[in-house]
Write a protein that binds this DNA or RNA. Structure first.
Lengths: 137, 137
DNA sequence: CTAAGGTCTGTAGTTGATACAGGCTCAAGG
DNA sequence: CCTTGAGCCTGTATCAACTACAGACCTTAG
């Protein structure tokens, strides 16, 4: 791990360091997920380690499917300790339930779709088992 | 099955007959998924069987996760026979691949999340294994 | 000194709906 | 006949979560 301490990098550097889209950084600042960074005399945003770390946290949370509102909640513990571990756990469990529901839903879709596709002859005729299935299901 | 032929129902009736949201019908007409229906002398939309059937087709396709653009493609076969069965099959297979990819993705998320939640003590402390995991993953 | 490329701002577009305001119209009850 | 409430009409705004663009400014390498 490279723990090289970084101070005063620009937005493009932060984007590269985290893999985050350039514009998304500005968006996160606008909605308060990321703090307004200090500026250079000419108005350029200036980031450091703490921003890299926080943005990676946000991205990891998003990658696990937490909504931005949920991420805001998670950051509550990070920032002000306004949330307890128990609350975070509850939130994560709710989210886990949603993820499992989505998996169940997609699994049902997968089953129906694969059955339907299997019934299709795949020829050049303008008559199709998939279309029929969508009409008559 | 009730095959009672229906002619000249209004938008609210179509919504009830299909379970579709009232405003969504207008939206589908605006984007060309549903045709502009004939109007009464006073401008009221007038639907019949064919609209009920088509809207149900659209809803079933959406329920299986097809995007509106994909639905548009499926409707191509229904409407003008501009697509062959083979093309529909190819589209369905691509979509099936996407569904499977999503399931794989969510399954990974589910695994990480459930492991993380399990490591959490769930007490009132302002220190949380979930937060730590999001930082250090 | 110049040219390329990075950054600044505000704003618009994306997908797939859903909601609302303000005005008409229609049907039923009194 | 009149009223009242439901339903319908239109255009426009809102949501998540970004992403992209225009036009101006700044920085840096050659």
């Amino acid at each position: 791990m490279s723990n090289t301490s970084v101070r005063s990098i620009r937005r493009g550097d932060l984007a590269r360091a985290t893999g985050c889209n350039l514009e998304t950084i500005r968006y996160y600042e606008k909605i308060g997920i990321m703090p307004d960074p200090p500026r250079s005399t000419k108005g350029y945003r200036s980031y450091d380690d703490t921003h890299v770390r926080r943005l990676k946290f946000v991205m990891r949370s998003r990658d696990l499917g937490f909504s931005l509102e949920e991420v805001r909640g998670l950051l509550g513990l990070v920032d002000n300790r306004i949330q307890t571990c128990a609350e975070v756990q509850a939130m994560a469990e709710v989210h886990l339930g949603e993820v499992r529901a989505k998996i169940a839903d997609l699994t049902r879709i997968e089953r129906v779709l694969s059955e339907t596709v299997a019934r299709c002859t795949g020829d050049a005729a303008p008559d199709c088992a998939i279309i029929d299935a969508l009409f008559d299901a």
